[in-house]
Design a binder for these strands. Structure first.
Lengths: 193, 193
DNA sequence: ACCGTATGCCAACGGCTGTTGACACACAAC
DNA sequence: GTTGTGTGTCAACAGCCGTTGGCATACGGT
């Protein structure tokens, strides 16, 4: 502890910490958890691998810090009910294209139990909460959130991870127009109507 | 070459080969490509790691053999047009629950480029072919197949890989009733109608 | 019986991994 | 200047990985 001025003065190492985090997110997103080595991340950040250990304790700790994520879901009660699906898909597409953290989490969740646990937390907590907010039948809330997650994660998986050509080539707005009705039904509809 | 009787007489090592393949599928499905070690697979199959190398050449070769997969899609032209979605979801659910190969491929595709390539091949070739068979607009065929893949893979990813509770708990038939209309629209509908 | 080959185990290699500890330098306080 | 602490580098460890080559054994054809 430097214990200088009052609560937290910016430390000189903050830039390094940030560089490590940025490099870690890139590598985790591109290679997944096990192939993203601490040595490679450190090289990207132009520092020594041992710095990563000092600042983040372990590879698991680094991933935990790099995979911190907030879906930043809009308040669904403020959205007109028939536009719920459209708003949600567009939000996710924007959120995904602009921040590689979720792709890192997605790739890592396939093989790393901790990452899967975190993914479960994000979609169980944040998404379920958003769905519950404009609450219809509470008994169906979890199922609706799960179904939305299945289509959203499937979209991300095919577009950003496996890179299926028809999903990569599609313009965002075309994807919105196809997928919005799906989410709309998962959120407000009933099965097989 | 033993070159005994006519074309291919069953060799004594076929049981070993099969044991290796079975163990490999299990490990790849449970742990993904990099965490599934040849040593662990060999231990499961109760043989020496070097046997894996002799019979499959390398880890990549073993995976290629273990991830051989046929979706066994039904002939969609023989299905009544309004039941396409339902038939397809049910087929995939059955196919998935009964064969861990696809889960292995799914997990591995997140981190292993070769596995991703194979996944692309399976869904680009087999699924696109099935969709093209009862052909509507050829220009839309690839997109329809991609969208179906996104929902199907999202279902598999949330249910078998990340294990989101609401997706794991759901009865197969309930999933069918929710997801069938989605596939139905991806296959025969138009965007945002 | 012999011989060639297929099958299997064992020990080891080189390489890469996460992680650690010792050491050098920079900066602020006094 | 001296001291102490934060920041960074370097070299090395122990462990696991895929992979290899040699050697024993069992089998099948003759």
């Amino acid at each position: 502890m430097t214990a200088p001025a009052h609560p937290t003065q910016p430390r000189r190492s903050d830039a390094t910490r940030a560089a490590i985090l940025r490099a870690a997110r890139e590598r985790f997103a591109a290679d997944g958890y096990e192939r993203a080595t601490i040595r490679a991340i450190a090289a990207d950040a132009r520092i020594d691998p041992s710095m990563v250990m000092r600042y983040y304790g372990s590879k698991e700790g680094l991933f935990a810090a790099a995979a911190e994520f907030d879906l930043r879901l809009p308040d669904l009660t403020a959205v007109s009910p028939e536009q719920l699906g459209e708003v949600l898909v567009r939000h996710f597409l924007v959120r995904w294209e602009g921040d590689e953290t979720l792709v890192a989490l997605l790739r890592a969740a396939s093989t790393n139990p901790g990452a899967a646990e975190r993914m479960r937390g994000i979609f169980a907590d944040q998404l379920t909460a958003a769905v519950a907010a404009f609450g219809t039948d509470p008994a169906l809330t979890a199922r609706r959130a799960g179904l939305v997650a299945s289509q959203i994660l499937g979209l991300a998986f095919t577009r950003y991870v496996v890179r299926l050509p028809p999903m990569v080539d599609a313009e965002p707005e075309e994807l919105v127009s196809w997928i919005a009705p799906t989410l709309q039904r998962y959120l407000t509809g009933l099965p097989q109507t």
